[in-house]
Computed example of a mutant assay.
Amino acid sequence: MRIRFTAEVYEWAARPNWFFVDVPSEPSADIADRPRMPRGFGAVRVTATIGATTWSTSIFPGGETYALPLKRAVLRAEGLEAGSTARVELEVHDG
Rank of each mutant, 00 (worst) to 15 (best):
46 V>G: 12
71 K>R: 15
38 P>G: 03
86 A>T: 01
24 P>L: 07
86 A>Q: 13
27 P>F: 00
15 R>G: 00
62 G>P: 00
79 G>R: 05
89 E>S: 12
45 R>S: 01
94 D>F: 07
93 H>T: 05
13 A>D: 13
42 G>L: 12
57 T>V: 09
78 E>P: 02
74 V>G: 02
27 P>N: 02
13 A>C: 02
4 R>L: 05
31 I>A: 08
45 R>F: 04
48 A>M: 07
41 F>V: 07
76 R>V: 14
35 P>M: 06
64 E>Y: 06
92 V>M: 01
70 L>A: 09
73 A>C: 07
71 K>G: 00
24 P>G: 00
52 A>K: 15
94 D>V: 11
27 P>I: 00
70 L>T: 02
61 P>E: 09
46 V>K: 10
22 D>F: 01
24 P>Y: 02
3 I>V: 15
54 T>S: 15
72 R>Y: 06
88 V>H: 07
5 F>Y: 10
86 A>G: 10
22 D>N: 14
87 R>K: 14
26 E>R: 14
23 V>T: 02
14 A>N: 12
72 R>D: 11
30 D>E: 14
92 V>C: 04
53 T>R: 15
24 P>V: 06
26 E>P: 03
9 V>H: 08
4 R>P: 04
65 T>L: 07
84 S>W: 10
12 W>M: 04
13 A>M: 06
62 G>I: 05
37 M>W: 08
14 A>I: 04
76 R>W: 06
73 A>H: 13
12 W>D: 11
17 N>T: 02
6 T>R: 15
4 R>M: 04
45 R>Y: 04
59 I>L: 09
47 T>C: 10
37 M>S: 14
45 R>T: 12
19 F>G: 00
34 R>D: 05
26 E>I: 03
22 D>R: 15
14 A>Q: 14
9 V>F: 09
70 L>F: 09
84 S>A: 08
59 I>C: 03
35 P>D: 01
36 R>D: 00
34 R>V: 12
20 F>G: 03
50 I>R: 13
90 L>V: 00
15 R>P: 00
